[in-house]
Amino acid sequence: MFPYDKYLRRDKFPHIWCTGCGCGIVLKALLRAIERSKIPKDDVAIVSGIGCSSRTPGYLDFNTLHTTHGRAIAFATGLKLAKRKLKVIVVTGDGDATAIGGNHFIHAARRNLDMTVIIYNNYIYGMTGGQVSPTTPAGKRSTTSPHGNVEPAFDISGLAIAAGAPFVARTTCYHAVQLDKYINKGIMKKGFSVVEVLTPCPTYYARPNRLGNAVEMLEWYKNNSIQIEVARNTSDEEKAGKITIGILHDSDRPEFCDVYSQLSARVREANKE
């Protein structure tokens, strides 16, 4: 039995997420990852924006900050720069991170500030009742794309890599054990780490699009994803329509806090002369 209780604010349960919502699965993976990292609870800060996934911090016994829509990463930037010892983890949704929060997402990736960003990608705006999001697949229905979504979707992981994030992994709620490994890797990595998790939203994504319940969605993830190692030597036809999962990018680059500390040291040194 995993000691989730060690990290939960139990008096806040049962949580608000809908039946079969993947947020609970991702939250469990996050706690397993934090447990494995052995980082003391006092040094962990969980920052979120607005949306279903952004209610996560309220349930967790850490320094928790529930900010404004799309701005979690910008708040986290100030928090981290002001207290470097904090292990800052941002939990955000596809809309929160790449619609209203897109500007902060790409710039924090560019700066390579040390934080782990977990994006619960459920393809929809859940909290506000099922509107289309930047990741809603073309053709899919939502309350604001009742005739089918005509906009192409973002590839969040691709966006993160292009913006300069040194560690980017994507997986799904079906691959829950793999998920906690990626989150842990992101936490232990010094730099801007992104873990995109495809998360089932039975209520506002699956139902209007007749994709079944949570079990069927997890099933869908299983049958429609392909590990990147396998994908590398699979023909395009074979992997057409499949979502590539795994560690999509893992490199190293000077981290912003370090770079700024070196700058301060250099400036103070020069000041002495």
């Binding site: 039995m1 989730y4 939960l8 349960f13 049962p14 949580h15 997420w17 919502c21 947020c23 699965i25």
Partner: peptide, 17 residues
């Protein structure tokens, strides 16, 4: 095997020795 505990989104199931 703990799969139920890992996948339960509601923290409602625990597997004990």
């Amino acid at each position: 095997c703990q799969l139920c505990e890992i996948y339960c989104p509601d923290f409602a199931i625990t597997v004990h020795n």
